[in-house]
């Protein structure tokens, strides 16, 4: 464990807590894409399949349980909670996210580190996570004004993988044989997808005005 990875995990944890806080306290998921939340639930489900078989550390298992629990409960809130589900704008959140899953699965079947059931699903979860934010960014451009909590959620979600990139660089230089191209490229693509969001988020913060992505 290094400071970059810890910062990344804490930023990731903060992002899911901000979103859970928003949905649980103001009972609203306006501006949040259910499609992205469903994709993230699938990302964690396929990435943490080994939670029962391979034990790394208490921290590792605890965080896996938190990410699994939070992502599935967010989906549950948005789909089934009587008050929250009414605030979900389904006619704006129309990204065909199932079409994202197939290419990720095909790519995982082609490019992976080991051709085993767990490893292919783990690689699938990496590719899927890289594109999982797309429905949310598309929804952001459609809904003119977004509230601060949703903006903070996306900012933290984008930032965590940026910390992981620093972690991979650190591990590359400090651990022999630590080379994972697939993880690195997927993580880089994922972070780059947030580039324009980060730019407009910074502008809105600097000019102290509402965050608005150009249509």
């Amino acid at each position: 464990m290094n400071i970059f990875r810890l910062a990344g995990d804490m930023t990731h944890l903060a992002s899911v807590l901000v979103l859970l806080l928003k949905i649980h306290t103001i009972k609203s998921c306006a501006g949040v894409s259910l499609k992205t939340q469903e994709l993230y639930a699938i990302v964690f489900a396929t990435r943490y399949l080994d939670i029962l078989t391979s034990f790394v550390s208490i921290y590792n298992t605890l965080m896996k349980l938190i990410f699994l629990g939070s992502s599935f409960s967010i989906v549950w809130y948005m789909k089934y909670h009587k008050t929250v589900r009414r605030t979900y704008d389904r006619d704006q959140d129309t990204f065909r996210h199932w079409f994202l899953m197939l290419p990720c699965l095909l790519l995982a079947l082609l490019i992976h580190e080991k051709f085993t059931f767990f490893e292919v699903l783990w690689t699938f979860s990496l590719y899927l996570e890289a594109v999982a934010i797309l429905p949310q960014l598309v929804l952001l451009q459609r809904t003119r004004n977004i509230d601060n909590l949703t903006g903070q959620y996306i900012f933290l979600l984008g930032g965590y993988r940026g910390f992981y990139i620093l972690n991979w660089i650190y591990r590359y230089f400090t651990e022999p044989h630590y080379v994972h191209w697939i993880t690195w490229i997927a993580g880089l693509v994922q972070t780059l997808l947030y580039a324009d969001f980060f730019y407009y988020y910074f502008l809105s913060w600097k000019n102290n005005k509402k965050l608005q992505l150009p249509a």
Binding site: H12, K64, K114, T183
Partner: peptide
């Protein structure tokens, strides 16, 4: 090597 491959990151 095997331990190396085990995914120790979240």
């Amino acid at each position: 090597k095997e331990a190396e491959n085990a995914h120790d990151e979240l």
